[in-house]
Computed example of a mutant assay.
Amino acid sequence: MESNASPEGRAAEPSRPQSLPTRIAALWADGLGRASIRSVQVLSVLALAWVVVQAVTRVPLVLVPVLIASILASAMAPAVRWLAARGWPRALAVLASFLVIVAVVAGVVGGITAVVRDQAGVLAARAEAGIGQLQQFITTGPVALTSDQIDAARGEFQKFLAGGSLGADALTGLRTAGEIAAGTVLTAVILFFFLKDGEKIRSFLIGFLPAAQQGKAHLAAERSIVVLGGYVRGTLIIAAIDAVIVLAGLLILRVPLAVPLAAVVFLGGFIPIIGATAAGSLAVLVALVENGPVTALVVLVILVAANQFEHHILQPLFMGRVLRIHGLVIILALAAGATLAGVIGALLAVPLAAVGWTIYKTLADRDAPGPEPITPAASGTRR
């Protein structure tokens, strides 16, 4: 049966009102709605990241040994593979590598601790005297800051280093000798099992991911191991070279306590860009007290020159394909790590940032094997 309504009549009929779900969906269909949805997603990811950070920073006695063992295992993985490729049983290769790294770490840490401990009182006294002279110069010099302003600035700096839930623990090592011993033993145990069963542990964890993502996850893990291992080996070499340069300069200038001061510089070298120079400020204070302002200025020049040598020569040479991250990113990572976990956070921030960048590149199908510069590389490398 045909309708009697003409086309004009049908056109004049009012359109049916949209349903409420349709009207709500239309609100999110424009540019502002899509931006709002994306903002909610970003806030959700940030909230999840905050929860994870808060959770892991509540268990430093577990987190710190796991991270340290992961870094050391990555550095030793090539040695295990090298021995296994030459016919060593894997268990024997793991045991030999484990004993070597434990002996090296114990020897280096024990030797530096013994050197610094024997002179700790003298170093503290000379540093305090140097700070007193600097404070006197600042308060009577052209700037003429007050003692209260200087004390306030010093307090803010100390608060920055001690910031975060792990700050107190990081500045004092661990709170008790028992926790130190437990952390050391736990690190050794975790390191052994990472060297022995690292591939099985990695495969077990990646097995929780969807099958389509497991291939990329394995590739990201392999690249992360390369980055971590290269970072540790490169940092160790660079820190040793910085310490030798400072030691030679202090011996030539006849500055007292040259060996313990160089040991402090070596430890500071494990914090990129600023670590060795900041640790070397103690040498400047000692030179100021014992040898006068001219020698202290020369020591400062040596520190700055060593920093530039590290920045433009050593880092491109030893970590050219590992730490290819802009200097600003490194500084921000150091600041974030120090705020969250004090000195421990500053030590671990840069390798973790390098690993995070490597994982991101792998998941985003950027096939370069190491972190790339966000802008032309701060370390002086060329693409």
Rank of each mutant, 00 (worst) to 15 (best):
A305K: 10
A129N: 08
G87E: 07
A69V: 03
D197E: 06
A240N: 09
V143H: 13
D169H: 12
V56N: 07
R126S: 12
T362Y: 14
L347H: 11
A84M: 00
L145A: 02
I101F: 00
P65F: 02
A354E: 10
N291S: 15
G268H: 02
A188Q: 01
L228N: 05
L191K: 00
I274V: 13
N307I: 10
F137E: 10
V246I: 03
R38I: 07
A217H: 10
V298I: 13
L195F: 09
V102N: 00
L323Q: 11
V94M: 06
S44N: 06
T187E: 00
A49T: 05
P142N: 05
N307G: 14
P376H: 12
L340G: 05
A243T: 01
V116P: 02
V45G: 02
V80W: 09
Q133E: 14
F208V: 08
I374D: 15
E199D: 15
G178L: 04
G141T: 14
G33C: 10
E310I: 09
V42W: 08
Q41E: 05
G327V: 13
P210L: 13
L328M: 13
R90S: 05
Q119V: 07
D197L: 03
V40D: 00
R58E: 04
G183M: 08
I225S: 12
R126V: 10
A212E: 11
T362V: 15
Q214G: 05
P369F: 02
S44P: 02
M1C: 12
W50T: 06
G337F: 11
G107V: 02
R233E: 02
I237E: 09
A93M: 02
L161R: 11
A85M: 03
P293L: 15
T362F: 11
W28R: 06
V102S: 00
L161Y: 07
E13G: 08
Q214L: 12
Q315N: 14
G163K: 05
T187H: 00
Q41D: 03
G132V: 09
G163H: 14
P256W: 11
G164E: 06
L332R: 05
M76G: 00
L317Q: 06
